[in-house]
Nucleic acid binder design. Sequence first.
DNA 1: ATCCCGAGGG
DNA 2: CCCTCTGGAT
Length: 212
Amino acid sequence: MTKKERAAAVTELLKEVYPDAVCALHYTHDYELLFATRLSAQCTDARVNIVTETLFRQFPTLQSFSEAPEEEIAEAIKTCGLFRTKARDLKACAIMLLSEYDGKVPDNMEDLLRLPGVGRKTANLILGDIFGKPAIVADTHCIRLSNRLGFVKNEKDPVKVENALRKLISPAESSDFCHRLVLFGREHCTARSPKCSGCPLGAVCPSYPVTK
DNA sequence: ATCCCGAGGG
DNA sequence: CCCTCTGGAT
């Protein structure tokens, strides 16, 4: 079985496991997904959702974020970790979105990467989820599973994983594919003790079984 | 002790 | 390439 055939098989199997490829982060405005994604660094999305439920009520507009003291934002997001840098990023990001982008989240990689605290992972998520564009979100789950599934070998560089997946997954499906990888990585193919027994991908996974 | 849908700086 | 930021969960 070639890599591409395996990628196609995994794609179809994941569709059966997760018919809906949804993003787990809660948001109503576009910029709120941007902010929630920034908060999700080194933090579970479940915790991000707990924090943003009150955060987005306390600061209901981009304007309110741009005017808020950093310490107030920091206090509100403290339990997400990395709170000082994240608070600085949210405020600076709100200011730049208002002053340079008419308060709208940009729809291209170059402009997204200009925003404070927005890196490739966040930018790709926005391109896929907000704008429905082809996007490969090479986060920690995507990287771990891409290695276990043999799409890359011992590769930790997110850009290299992104490029490898671009050759294996059709652009139209890449965003949904990554969402499903994340869901599967969280629930089954976990970092520490992957639940290999009975794994729906076991038949095509070169790492199976990771655990005895 | 290790990991969680990272990003920026040196 | 490396390091730092950081609380929470397991």
